[in-house]
Structure formats: structure tokens, C-alpha cells
């Protein structure tokens, strides 16, 4: 890691790996919504919809992987 305040580095080190996916889902949802709409209201609504879709799909995949690893 680049030199950062020790407290920040410690906090980041303790964040569960799964949590790092959340900002990526949000970023993807915002860009998907922004590239499909023009008005701010529609962009906001579509971004929320995309978060649901992406989160749902990734959550389902995660659940399936967890289930398979539990059964194995």
C-alpha cells in the first residue's frame, strides 16, 4: 500500500473482501443508467433499478457458489 495514515490502512485491511464489490456495483449502475437516459430523474431511477439487477444477479451467483461449496 502507498503511505497512508496507519488508521486508514488498518481499517481498509479489516474490510471484508465482499464489501469491495459494493462500490463497483454502484459505479456500474450509475454508468449504465447515465448512458441510457438523459434526465436526472430517470438516471436516478434507472441507477436504483440497475443496483437491484446487478446486486441480485451477483448475489444469486454468490449464493450458488456458497451452496455448492457447502455441499462439496
Amino acid at each position: 500500500m502507498m503511505p497512508v495514515p496507519p488508521l486508514v490502512a488498518t481499517l481498509v485491511d479489516h474490510v471484508p473482501g465482499l464489501a469491495f464489490g459494493v462500490p463497483l456495483v454502484l459505479a456500474a449502475a450509475v454508468v449504465f443508467a447515465g448512458t441510457h437516459h438523459e434526465s436526472p430523474e430517470r438516471i436516478r431511477a434507472a441507477a436504483i433499478e440497475w443496483v437491484g439487477w446487478l446486486g441480485g444477479i451477483l448475489g444469486a451467483v454468490l449464493l450458488a457458489v456458497a451452496l455448492v461449496s457447502w455441499l462439496a
Binding site: 462500490p23 450509475v30 454508468v31 447515465g34 436526472p40 438516471i43
Partner: peptide
């Protein structure tokens, strides 16, 4: 402008 700033902030931050 709104979309430009939205994309800029989102992607540069990421």
C-alpha cells in the same frame, strides 16, 4: 454537464 460530471466523478474515483 450533469452527465459529464457524473461520469467524471464516478470513473475517476473508481
Amino acid at each position: 454537464r450533469l452527465k459529464g460530471l457524473l461520469f467524471m466523478v464516478t470513473l475517476v474515483t473508481t
